[in-house]
């Protein structure tokens, strides 16, 4: 048993070596979902930058939120015999046949940011973040910052029922579990938008004695936090001091708020999915190192000590 597996592994290695004559990817196709959010635009920008740095020719296809466009793009990449394909899938299902075509053409496919519902052997690896982990990082920061003092937390949830909202809530709750001094007193959806974040925060402030009962705000994304900061200011309180603010995503605008002392911490959902993807691809093509099926990106915590103004300057041109 053990023996035959080794042989298959060797065979695969041999084939890979034959399929990649230069042992380095020259041309990579990238099928992007679209540009529905600033984060996605930044992901596209960073992928282009990463490819350029490594001397890879990137063939880019914008699917405008349509799976059929993505499938078309994949088939055209296969026809052009690219060395590898990056795919940010718009939906989870319906990929089996086109992925099989890529496999038959010996073109490795790496999934970015989202998963598909297909047999694992049809793609090389998937690069993405762990949403639960992000929530946990945010919660840990608050636990460490508050210490033993009692702290009432209000939570701005993402769109009700969406997986980021469910997972980020769960991770945060895991992190604060066991710390009796931390308590979520109000939790309401802000639909991931600034306008709703502001409106819901206004009601939190009204409901909690003008905000004087509130010690910290946890927002499932930065946009809602930016809206909430305005509401807190309009209520005559100082965001960042009277109410601690921690959120997730690390979009440029939250660094402006942190630089102004109005926000305390954010957890990065990195748009640089392409970096780890290219690393794994290089290793695979060079010496056949088969990467794990899921590569988790770093969920980096930024606080006011991380020179937010400089981070803003770095991030603002990424297309967020």
């Amino acid at each position: 048993m053990q023996c035959s597996k080794t042989w298959i592994g060797l065979g695969a290695l041999l084939m890979a070596a034959l399929a990649a004559p230069a042992a380095m990817a020259q041309t990579v196709g990238f099928s992007q979902i679209g540009s529905e959010s600033g984060w996605r635009a930044a992901e596209t920008t960073l992928t282009r930058m990463q490819a350029e740095e490594r001397g890879i020719t990137l063939k880019f296809a914008d699917a405008q939120q349509k799976q059929e466009n993505q499938i078309k793009a994949l088939r055209s990449f296969i026809a052009q015999d690219v060395d590898a394909i990056l795919l940010a899938p718009v939906v989870a299902t319906g990929w089996d046949s086109v992925l099989r075509e890529a496999k038959e053409a010996d073109i490795p496919v790496i999934l970015l940011d989202r998963m598909v519902d297909a047999p694992e052997d049809l793609y090389l690896t998937a690069v993405g973040s762990d949403l639960v982990h992000e929530g946990r990082v945010a919660g840990q920061w608050l636990v460490e910052t508050v210490g033993d003092k009692p702290c009432n937390i209000v939570e701005l949830q993402g769109t009700t029922g969406s997986s980021p909202a469910i997972d980020r809530k769960a991770g945060f709750e895991q992190a604060i579990a066991g710390h009796e001094n931390l308590k979520i007193i109000r939790s309401q959806t802000g639909d991931f938008t600034r306008a709703k974040g502001k409106e819901v925060m206004e009601s939190f402030l009204k409901a909690e004695n003008g905000g004087r009962n509130i010690c910290a705000l946890y927002a499932h994304n930065d946009d809602m936090a930016v809206g909430a900061i305005q509401a807190i200011k309009e209520a005559g309180l100082k965001p960042g001091q009277d109410i601690l603010i921690v959120s997730i995503d690390a979009v440029p605008d939250i660094f402006l708020a942190m630089a102004a002392g109005e926000a305390n911490a954010t957890v990065e959902l990195t748009p640089n999915m392409a970096g780890p993807a290219f690393d794994a691809l290089e290793a695979y093509l060079k010496n056949g190192t088969v990467p794990p099926k899921f590569i988790q990106t770093e969920s980096k915590l930024y606080t006011q000590n991380d020179d937010p103004a400089a981070v803003y300057e770095q991030k603002k041109n990424l297309g967020y």
Binding site: E36, D191, T193, A195, K198, G227, Q230, D253
Partner: peptide, 10 residues
């Protein structure tokens, strides 16, 4: 109100 134009959600 939100100091910005949010084309997706406004």
């Amino acid at each position: 109100d939100i100091r910005g134009a949010d084309a997706n959600n406004a």
